[in-house]
Amino acid sequence: MSTTTPTAPAEPERKAPAAKRTKVRPGDRIFSGAARGAGISLLAIMAAIAIFLVVKATDALSKNQGSFLTDQGWDPNTAKPAFGVVTLVFGTVVSATIAMLIAVPVAVGVALFITHYAPRRIAQTLGYIIDLLAAVPSVVYGLWGYIFLAPKLLGLHSWLSDYLGWIPVFDKEQAGVTARTLFTVGIVLAIMILPIIAAVTREVFLQVPRAHEEAALALGATRWEMIRVAVLPYGKPGIISASMLGLGRAVGETIAVAMVLSPSFDLSIHILDPGNTTIAANIANQFGESNEIGRGALIASGLVLFIMTLLVNGAARVVINRRKAFSGANS
């Protein structure tokens, strides 16, 4: 019986602290124990996320008749479930890439403008407005992108395909009437992540030592030369980590993409045609209509997304390991 044993191991543990010279007060032990416990519970949550996703994903993957890595279709709710993640990963990567190409240069420009160009008195207000805009919920961006922006971008779509159509990516095959495309999604995502990147980059630029800037100016540098030789080199790790933060948001964004994009499972490089879909948006779109295996399949795709964001964040960590304050979690 196990009920007779439990008191035995408790005895030596109680004696151990007595050997120390200073007495640890019980209040201290409880409090530090609680604090440590909270830290450990946070680790436990992260571990549980990984474990549960893997377990549920393998359940579904074992029933998959197709190949999870190469299949283009998503058909897990039938008697012969077959689903693959390649279209989803492609759409996720492409939309995030478009967003980054637009957002990073503009955000760096915004941060430079606020820190080095705008009059000092306005600058703080501008930075504050950018912070506020970073807090606008994504569902609002989704609604705006779907109802306001997408119709306005139709002209840009046909202009791009008319003049740049010889580049395969800009070739518009469907004479579409809708601009709910991967390209539009990229623009909406760019607008969403811009305030975040700008806010973090601004913080970094504000920390550039004044002596560096003044030294450059004293040597006769113009303002742009000062920025190039003093501000940008110093801020580079910060810019990279801010971009990674933005990339993480763009990759994981769900609801705005689900609202703006008109999804399909034909993998197509023509970003001006409606179609393609992203991992996160696909989960939001399909979850309600899926059965047990279908939801397992969606969890499997969620695991892929989780790994992608882990890689992005890990890369950011490596770059900024020296400067913890720029992590952006507190912006």
Binding site: F52, F306, G314, A329
Partner: peptide, 22 residues
Amino acid sequence: VTFFVDVMTGLPSIVAGLFIYA
């Protein structure tokens, strides 16, 4: 703990939802 707080910051909200669902 510090490292995983950073990792958690980048956790997509849909993944958190999937985890609680599972």
